[in-house]
């Protein structure tokens, strides 16, 4: 049954036509949910106040399934973009929101996603100020795709730059790794396994804001290890800064269930996606203080120091294994695929 008396049970092609049905869908669900003065301007876009340099980032979300343990595609679409703006040392303020809906999506599911977007935007302190809705024929999409663009201002204390990374810097992560990827995988067709693994999707802009307020220039770099995982971020750091990265396998925080699921499926948690943790490269002298601050923060209670910037092996990431051996860590090539035995 439709959650709104004026709307049918499922989304139809005409909801993307730009005509009356589009109007009904927007009025009944989108405008009522996101109600704010910028949307009420009813322009083709939004005119928003912002002074000085602008931080901008865009991302598209195509996750399947659209609802998963610990979140949904709507929440992900907000947090993902908010976090990208924050990782540049920005304070995100406004979001654009584009939907590509496959006809047949249940209206209740669409409403659930929109409400989830609203909750996530409120939690992050950003406003949805403009958007777009398109509907494609059945079979031409995968239920719903979402694109968001985030706009904000640079943090006054932020000096985030790859060039600032120096020998002796420490690499911190703000929580246990690999939860999001394993939560999604555990619900994929053909791979379903019973677990209580939850996606870690959350906003990180408040953590970034608080860290920059407290430590400013001592923080040299933020990155969120989404697709490609922590290894992807560390490889970028090594390659782009030209410095050596040394990681310690035993220092990685990881939930017991996530670690076990990775073992069973033959996946390396270093390559598995995260959606609610950040990597920070910080000045070695204040790293213990920064770590303690993160661990006391509601968005960083599981923080840990996982490695450091070293003079050896410039441009490469090396990991010390649990038995004291060393190996090189390469970025993910293609998709990480399950092993045969």
């Amino acid at each position: 049954m439709s959650p709104k008396p004026n709307l049918p049970d499922s989304i139809q092609l005409a909801h993307g036509s730009g005509g009356l049905m589009t109007r009904e869908l927007l009025d009944e669900i989108v405008f009522t949910t996101f109600k704010n003065p910028y949307l009420e301007q009813k322009h083709d876009g939004a005119i928003v106040p912002l002074t000085g340099p602008v931080v901008i980032s865009t991302d598209s979300f195509v996750v399947s399934p659209i609802f998963f343990r610990g979140g949904d595609i709507g929440e992900l679409a907000v947090n993902g973009t908010v976090n990208d703006v924050a990782m540049c040392g920005g304070i995100p303020r406004y979001l654009s929101l584009g939907f590509i809906i496959e006809e047949g999506l249940l209206t209740t599911d669409f409403l659930k996603i929109v409400e989830s977007i609203k909750r996530a935007a409120d939690a992050a302190g950003v406003q949805v100020v403009t958007g777009d809705t398109k509907v494609v024929e059945s079979g031409k999409g995968d239920k719903i795709f979402i694109n968001t663009t985030g706009i904000g201002s640079p943090h006054p204390n932020g000096q985030i730059a790859m060039e600032r990374i120096a020998e002796g810097d420490q690499i911190l992560v703000s929580g246990p790794i690999a939860a999001h990827g394993m939560a999604i995988l555990s619900e994929r067709e053909g791979l379903e396994f019973e677990s209580e693994i939850q996606s870690d999707t959350t906003n990180l802009n408040h953590l970034v804001d608080d860290l920059l307020k407290a430590f400013g220039g001592a923080i040299h770099l933020f990155r969120d290890p989404t697709r490609g995982g922590v290894s992807g971020v560390c490889s970028e750091i090594a390659q782009d800064s030209g410095r050596g990265v040394l990681l310690r396998e035993t220092d990685f925080p990881i939930h017991h269930q996530v670690a076990a699921a990775c073992e069973i499926l033959g996946l390396d948690p270093l390559y598995v996606a995260n959606e609610g943790i950040l990597c920070a490269v910080v000045d070695g002298a204040v790293a213990p203080e920064v770590l303690a601050f993160m661990q006391a923060h509601p968005k960083g209670s599981g923080s840990a120091c996982i490695g450091s910037i070293v003079p050896d092996h410039p441009g490469k990431v090396v990991m010390e294994s649990s038995i004291g051996g060393k190996r090189i860590v390469t970025p993910l090539i293609g998709e990480q695929l399950p092993r045969i035995c």
Partner: peptide
């Protein structure tokens, strides 16, 4: 091959 990977991944060959 699983043993090969474990040897290399854990840095055992060098030890």
């Amino acid at each position: 091959g699983g043993q090969t990977h474990s040897l290399v991944r854990n840095g055992l060959l060098d030890l």
